[in-house]
Design a protein around this nucleic acid. Structure first.
Lengths: 334, 334
DNA sequence: CCATATGCGGAAAGCGGTTTCAGCGGTGCG
DNA sequence: CGCACCGCTGAAACCGCTTTCCGCATATGG
């Protein structure tokens, strides 16, 4: 009764009382369920409006067994690549009335399983974006994560819908490009060592560089600063071309070269991965392997959405990235 | 009973039954509330573990009247500025066990009130980031949004905790810098016309440019592409310096100039706002007004957190941005 | 040794909705 | 005119968990 103590929101019962109907009827009106007498409906609408009633999403969630929320877990919210995927999902999900809960694992693979489970518990489904955990861990976790979809990662034996990118093809295109420009020594600025996608790129790189050029691998990281810091180390190896783990790293290297007066691509070529928006606006414009980022998110949502509706999700998709040759690569000057 | 039909998750009752205790006791054990006999506790723990029990966040939310979720509404998830703020909030909130629900209004001021309310309904609190709506609208909405905090925007007469940036000071520093370099004609690439912050910058710009240089305003936008597209238009006005609405716009212009062979800063100076990470890595490195982005998010969380705990939030804070002079500005060549 | 304080655990009442089910009056048809 | 059916509404169960309240058993003090 105490108005101070009960600052709480107005409930369906309050509306029912005001409109002199039962809560059931209010619920029906609010949800346009079975037909309700037009006069009653009007009374309910009016009561709801004048009381400023809004149904509690939490209570609805409990009653309906559905929250209209989905989670997405990314390794680094600071990476435009994941931001784009997030945008893609967020936009597509929004159209169907779903909202998105974001969790950032801050590139800490060990935290990932816990975070994934924790965030999943709060929503109806989950999108795992470039998970850094091991296959084994994901397989064990799968049961508790369902329904979920996997983005940017294929896990053998996992039944979850997957939206992936054929990075191997991207690597091969990159290698062919650099070899074609006459480069005989290439440095790879490696991503987080724990990252599976880094491992894959590394394997493919080794395999396809074989016989074409010498490959030097330098531990680096996944962010701007890492690339910036590693750039001159890479140059020191004598490499004439540098492959960044992703665009962030490549752009970081670009920045460093500019700062120390090393000309790209005249003295050294630089390439990245992802084709984030800034790759096109950097100077020189970054040659990179273009991944359809928003489409990745969009496709991920299509699959999650289907599963949530109890339907069969579309078949797994694997985008073949496109080599985007711009200005940061040129013929080997030596 | 049918295992197919009841694929549903295991509830607290299942655990209670398995451990031969009441649901109340299970709850107590799970929440380490009042002391429970160690033997019983063990039984419960074990039952929970073996059944793979995890309490339903939704049910907890309803029962406790608290979701441990907060919302954040941003005008453009694609803007690194907001991503940083989001990171700041997300990180700070995470420490206290809160997760973040993100909503992107896609620079559509008219949608904002609806989205704000909608997203607020699902959580315990809201962070409104650079809202584009009018003061009036926000004032009317305030009651239904509480508790919330305002970032990057001050609204007269609004009691909500506010974390702001003194853009006027930034503008003045910028104007002084450009005037000091001898620029007599400056073009402003205006942000979304509906945006309040754009309006403010415009006003301050007009006021402080008075008597120092001629100011031409061009409608532009808030994104990369907008800046890219507007760059040569700006050059066409005869301006020797260009102020972008934000870094995205400025970097877009930089990209265009590079593409068409206009040298920055030799032929034209370019400055932006925010100091997103890429500003430092662009070439030439962008002169800009640096806003402490993650700190903005962090401070916002401190205030929201206090209100959620029922405490008095810290006083409003207003960061004074710092002019970050880099390489994209130089003396007027004419 | 009895009365009172103390602590632990279960029953039950919510939290704020949705949904099933049954009752009610009214209509159509035989 | 009576019966079956139909559409609309309210009562009540339920979603899964928390928390108050109460009873019981044991420890404690007089």
């Amino acid at each position: 009764m105490d108005p101070v103590e009960r600052a709480h929101s107005v409930t369906i019962r309050d509306v029912a009382r005001a409109a002199q109907v039962s809560p059931a009827t209010v619920s029906r009106v609010m949800n346009r369920r079975s037909t309700v007498d037009v006069e009653l409906a009007r009374r309910v609408q009016q009561a709801a409006a004048s009381l400023g009633y809004h149904p509690s999403a939490v209570a609805q969630g409990l009653a309906r067994g559905r929250t209209d929320l989905v989670s997405i877990l990314v390794p680094d919210l600071g990476n435009p690549m994941f931001q784009s995927v997030l945008r893609g999902i967020s936009r597509a999900a929004g159209v169907e009335g779903y909202r998105v809960l974001v969790t950032d694992s801050h590139e800490m693979p060990l935290e990932e399983p816990f975070l994934a489970q924790e965030t999943r518990l709060r929503t109806d489904g989950l999108v795992l974006c470039s998970p850094r955990s091991h296959d084994q861990e994901l397989l064990e976790l799968a049961g508790k994560l369902e329904p979920f979809v996997l983005v940017n990662r294929h896990v053998e034996g996992l039944l979850a819908p997957t939206v992936a990118v054929d990075y191997a093809a991207g690597i091969r295109a990159l290698v062919a490009h650099l070899a074609g420009l006459g480069h005989r020594h290439v440095a790879y600025l490696s991503g987080p060592m724990a990252s599976v996608s880094n491992q894959q790129r590394l394997d493919t790189l080794h395999a396809s560089a074989e016989g074409r050029f010498e490959l030097t691998v330098l531990e680096c990281g996944s962010m701007h600063e890492d690339g910036y810091e590693a750039a001159d180390r890479a140059l020191g190896t004598g490499a004439t071309a540098i492959i960044g783990y992703n665009d962030l790293v490549a752009l970081g290297a670009l920045g460093k070269f500019h700062a120390i007066g090393v000309s790209v691509p005249d003295q050294v070529s630089v390439v990245g991965f992802d084709d984030i928006a800034f790759a096109r606006y950097a100077s020189p414009m970054l040659t990179t392997v273009a991944v359809p980022q928003e489409a990745l998110g969009e496709e991920a949502w299509q699959r999650l959405s289907a599963v949530l509706r109890g339907e069969e999700p579309p078949a797994d998709v694997c985008f073949t990235p496109r080599l985007e040759v711009r200005q940061s690569t040129a013929r080997n000057p030596r």
